[in-house]
């Protein structure tokens, strides 16, 4: 597996010589981590959008400009992508396309050179456990499970959980939801549910974190804490993220910004 990762690095990664050396060192570190923990760390996965136009937006897109729809996008390892998307521009549609939930669009979407429609259900599940994490706008918690159960369900999907229960408690304390983890999700406030959904996304390994308005119901203080947690998690994994936002006033540091 380490050899495979390095091979992929040499073939696909468009880093220049300097960054390539850094990448190699990071890859080596993660390879050692893999050998010691048995975890498979997906590194340097690229997201490649090629001229995607969702069918429901086709008419509207004919009359306005977009940095994403109909364009070619190649987002590489560690990219911090912010997508500013006013209402009705297809923000959630984009997240669903990136998450491989819908295929009603023209163009192609690739994970690491593989067209998403070609990915088998088994491989897709593997990617969602090991390489991709998500925070949906509508959160998608199981209403009858407690906050802790929602997180534990995701944490335990892999045979060897990436985070410990202690890590979960720690994150919950930082986000101020430790005291509601025992409640069923449908009895928590939307803001609490949003923080639980963020923790759920951060308990797994990933190389990309996809977020759809993850702070929409958080106050400034909790938004800052959540941003800090996300930044730490991405840093620890060498991962990047795609963040959709209504107005671009995010506390997360991004290196690429696009208008949807």
């Amino acid at each position: 597996m380490p050899q495979k990762i390095l091979l992929r690095l040499n073939n696909n990664n468009p880093c220049n010589n300097k960054t390539n050396a850094i990448c190699k060192r990071v890859a080596l570190c993660f390879s050692i981590h893999q050998l010691t923990t048995g975890l498979i760390f997906p590194l340097f996965m690229q997201l490649h959008l090629q001229h995607i136009i969702p069918f429901p937006l086709r008419d509207r897109l004919a009359s306005r400009h977009s940095d994403i729809w109909g364009r070619e996008m190649l987002w590489s390892a560690g990219d911090k992508v912010q997508i500013i998307a006013p209402s009705g521009t297809g923000k959630t549609t984009l997240v669903h396309v990136l998450w491989n939930l819908r295929h009603d669009y023209a163009g192609t979407m690739q994970y690491d050179g593989t067209e998403v429609r070609q990915i088998s259900p088994v491989r897709l599940a593997e990617m969602r456990q090991q390489e991709l994490a998500v925070v949906f706008q509508d959160l998608r918690l199981f209403p009858k499970l407690t906050g802790r159960e929602n997180i534990e369900l995701k944490r335990n999907m892999s045979r060897k959980p990436f985070c410990s229960s202690r890590d979960v408690e720690h994150m919950a304390e930082r986000l101020g939801v430790a005291n509601v983890l025992h409640q069923t999700a449908n009895t928590c406030s939307y803001g609490e549910q949003q923080r639980i959904a963020i923790i759920r996304a951060l308990v797994q390994p990933f190389s990309w974190l996809i977020m759809d308005e993850p702070f929409s119901h958080l106050d400034k203080q909790n938004t800052a804490i959540a941003s800090q947690l996300i930044t730490e998690a991405c840093h620890a994994r060498g991962a990047g993220f795609v963040l959709t936002d209504l107005d671009g006033n995010t506390t997360l540091i991004c290196n690429k910004t696009f208008q949807l």
């Binding site: 259900p121 599940a125 990617m127 969602r128 998608r140 995701k154 999907m157 797994q204």
Partner: peptide
């Protein structure tokens, strides 16, 4: 609905 959500979150067909 719950099974679809489980699949969305990454539960494998085998699980």
């Amino acid at each position: 609905m719950d099974i679809v959500l489980l699949q969305t979150l990454g539960a494998s067909p085998r699980q």
